[in-house]
């Protein structure tokens, strides 16, 4: 199974129409990857679907970088009892 980081990057690449290899953990979704507000909402929805989790939208939308998203999602998975590859 792919790791949380790999899955987060794959979803990000899909939504923002980017090459997955170009996405780095320190990338900011908005300023580096060009996510517009509607795409941020899409990203939250797609992460929820990918991992089978429910995220608080305020907390999720305050996450700024890819690396922070990986950490945030890993924690939510743990809280909600969803098994993932670290």
């Amino acid at each position: 199974m792919a790791t949380v980081e790999e899955r987060v990057k794959a979803v990000t690449a899909q939504v923002l129409k980017l090459n997955v290899d170009e996405i780095k953990n320190e990338d900011n979704f908005t300023s580096d990857l060009g996510a517009e507000s509607v795409q941020s909402i899409e990203l939250v929805a797609m992460f929820e679907e990918e991992f089978g989790i429910e995220m608080d939208e305020d907390a999720a939308l305050s996450v700024e970088t890819v690396g922070a998203a990986v950490e945030f999602i890993a924690n939510v998975c743990k809280e909600q009892g969803v098994k993932v590859e670290e």
Partner: peptide, 9 residues
């Protein structure tokens, strides 16, 4: 975008 989302909460 044609679907129900959580939006900005």
């Amino acid at each position: 975008e044609g679907v129900v989302t959580k939006g900005f909460g």
